[in-house]
Simulated assay, not measured.
Amino acid sequence: MGIELHFTKGQGTGNDFVLFSDPDGEVTLTPDQIRAVCDRRFGVGADGVIRAVKSAKLQAGAASLAEDDAAEWFMDYWNADGTLSEMCGNGIRVFTRFLIDNGLVELLPGDTIAIGTRAGVRDVQINRTGFQADLGRWSFDGGEPLVRGKNLPVARPGLGINVGNPHVVVALADDDELDSLDLTFIPQLDPELPAGANVEFVVPGDPLVVDGVGHIRMRVHERGSGETLSCGTGAVAAALATRHWAGASAPHQWRVQVPGGVLGVRMFPTEDGEHVSLSGPAELVFDGVLNLG
């Protein structure tokens, strides 16, 4: 039986998503359907699909409500290849915009909304660039695998960082190296990580720090989606890795240039350890209806 899917296309710095509302958890898309929706030639085209579902109506949402009973809504995120993803930094901002614009929540400047995700509950606020999401604690995770990329002459050491989902960050020498990468080919990790990883290639700004803010440029190959114009959690991982490489005097605020725009990253102390936040725009582009077989 077919599904009539009422959807919204949204994007955050070019990282684009198909979003739909399913408060009671009645609509289940198959991986084949998700791939069809995300196909840029035969479907709507997107880096992923996001379902807005009440946490109480989803098995994965039970953990979110146990962590914070204010996490009424769950961001059910699927990569373009039909696989599940734990977290999406650009996606959670666009998801929040979707909830607000569809009258599902009210969020005023200064207020915070708790959103359930498979990486845990994440808090989102309105800010001057759009939205800011507290992505919680982070960790070094995944070691330092060698990374091979198409058009990189030699393998480079990466740094494994987890911000709710796995990343490997690679430092490059200059813009020419970054621009020459062919990310239609999946970067190869040695050793491979059990769950795979998003891979970020980063070039530091010259100068690296301007008025107390660090500046970097990056491109990313996302697990399950390929190269994207932006990856929010990837920008966070790239800033964390660059701060680590730069040493104790490095700043805790960063400006990350991605092909789709600019994102802000901030590291700050909390009672349960250092958190990291991501800020940037979130826009809804158009609405539509799909008939899915």
Rank of each mutant, 00 (worst) to 15 (best):
H221Q: 00
V213Y: 12
G224V: 08
G226N: 06
A250W: 13
T228C: 15
S225Q: 08
V220N: 00
E222V: 13
A246K: 03
G224T: 09
A235L: 15
T242I: 15
V210R: 09
A250D: 13
V203Y: 04
L229R: 12
E227P: 11
A241G: 09
A241H: 12
L208H: 04
L208A: 07
G214P: 00
A237N: 15
I216Y: 06
P251L: 02
S249T: 14
G232T: 03
V203S: 02
E222T: 12
R223T: 09
A241S: 08
G205W: 06
P207Y: 02
R243P: 11
I216V: 14
G234S: 13
P251K: 00
C231P: 05
G205L: 02
W245L: 10
S230I: 03
V202G: 00
I216G: 04
V213N: 05
V236P: 13
V203K: 00
H244E: 14
V213K: 11
V213C: 11
R243M: 14
G212E: 13
H215K: 03
W245G: 01
V209G: 06
P204G: 02
I216E: 06
T228F: 13
P204C: 04
H221E: 01
G226M: 04
G205Y: 07
V210C: 02
W245Q: 01
L229H: 15
I216Q: 06
P251I: 05
C231M: 05
V203A: 03
S225C: 14
G247M: 07
A246N: 13
S225P: 12
V202S: 00
A235R: 07
E227H: 11
R223C: 08
G205M: 09
P251N: 12
G205Q: 02
L240R: 15
R219E: 01
D211S: 09
L240S: 07
S225M: 08
I216S: 01
E227V: 02
G232Y: 01
R223K: 08
A238Y: 05
G212W: 14
D206W: 05
